[in-house]
Amino acid sequence: MRKLIYLGPLLFFIITAVYFALPILKGKDPRILPSAMIEKNIPDLNLPPLLETKQGIDKQALMGEIQLVNFFSSWCGPCRTEHDFLMRINKSEIIPIYGINYKDKQNAAKAWLLDLGDPYERIGRDIDGRTAIDWGVYGVPETYLIDKHGRIQYRHVGPLSESIFKEKISPVIKALRKQTNG
């Protein structure tokens, strides 16, 4: 019995080592945070339009349909990276994307969309960044998946890509659609 006490440090060390190995083996980036908004209703919002040709965004506009809400900015490098993929989603009509233009200059954002294309159904301007804070955004780009009741179901931080979409977002969309149909 007494000898077992001497095994204590070893056991404790092994447990610690396992906890050190786990995040490396799983390839986890500790900087990625889960959203506190999952399963919650989207917050109230009423954003002015970015473009003359498209409406701005209010809470009503985001209800009734499964959709993506994408926070972006013309000054944000990773947003450029994901933009091409957003265009492809738009083209394939898998799911509508609503854009929230985060703390941007209107002209810069317009020029950016003119240059790279516009994948959004509607675009609202979050001029002072308060809407983003209400959603729990901590860095653009961030993309939220909303169900038809206006509840947030998934959040992705960082640029979206085809592989991330297929692995993480598509299954959630499918499950949501199944619920709706069934």
Partner: peptide
């Protein structure tokens, strides 16, 4: 990171086994 962890496990683990 994994390599250093392996060193850590080898030396500290080994020493603690000897200690036990």
């Amino acid at each position: 990171g994994l390599y250093i962890l392996a060193i850590l496990v080898l030396f500290v683990g080994g020493a603690l086994i000897m200690f036990a």
